[in-house]
Amino acid sequence: MTRFPDTSLVNLHNLKLDDACALLQHDAKNIEQEAGESDAAYLQRLIDGLCELSLRDPLTGLNNRRHFRSVLERSIDIVARSGESVLLLLLDIDRFKSINDGHGHLAGDQVLREIASCLAHCLRPMDTVARYGGEEFAIILPNCRPAFGLAVAERIRKSVAALSIPVSPLLSLKVTISIGGAYAPEWVRSTTDLWIERADKQLYRAKSEGRDQVCLDQPRELSVSAEEKGLLFGHLLMDESGIQENVPRDATSDEQSNAPKRENA
């Protein structure tokens, strides 16, 4: 502190902010210190901008892989204790190489951008969508019950398939995507690597079974069927209605008290 007797904590000129400003300017950010903006506030704004940049994919504006990993880490910890259902989807554009080869890289970039914005529109604010790799995207859907997972993934697949993407004044392209998905194991502390691996396996399955489709890993079997529940609780229902209390529980009345139980089951 004593080294900067100035009112400002640091001297902006000593910080060599040119690189940071260049990065932010490239991203269409205002990098000029505004009138009345204190040095500290200006610096904070630059730092915020850099943080944001470090989490975003420059081409599509989606979250990048780094941000995606940190959200996934957090999700898996929440699921371990809450048992909430969280679905991870991996999406891959079908035959993307032929788009690049046939129409050029600019067309490829345009396809990536259009799909990214389509995905962003398909989702709820709580969901996280990221560009995961070259032509791969990833989506984290918190609070997505297993019964709805397939419907959600199908809706995304169809939205992309319905796009008509203009890549030149005369040409629009149709593209499809394949989707693989897996739920975080409920109540289980697992690892993000394994979770991704399971989704990736399903993506591979979707690709090898002909593309333009969704394959989901079935959530871990902890289910109790309606039939099992019926058998488990037929007895409790009776218990509550007091039937058992009125029937003496000795050998002679056993037949009697068991008869309605079997019917219930």
Binding site: P185, V188, S190, L194, R220, E221
Partner: peptide, 10 residues
């Protein structure tokens, strides 16, 4: 890597 619980690794 092998410390999670997918059905086939568990």
């Amino acid at each position: 890597m092998n410390d999670g619980l997918t059905p086939d690794v568990e």
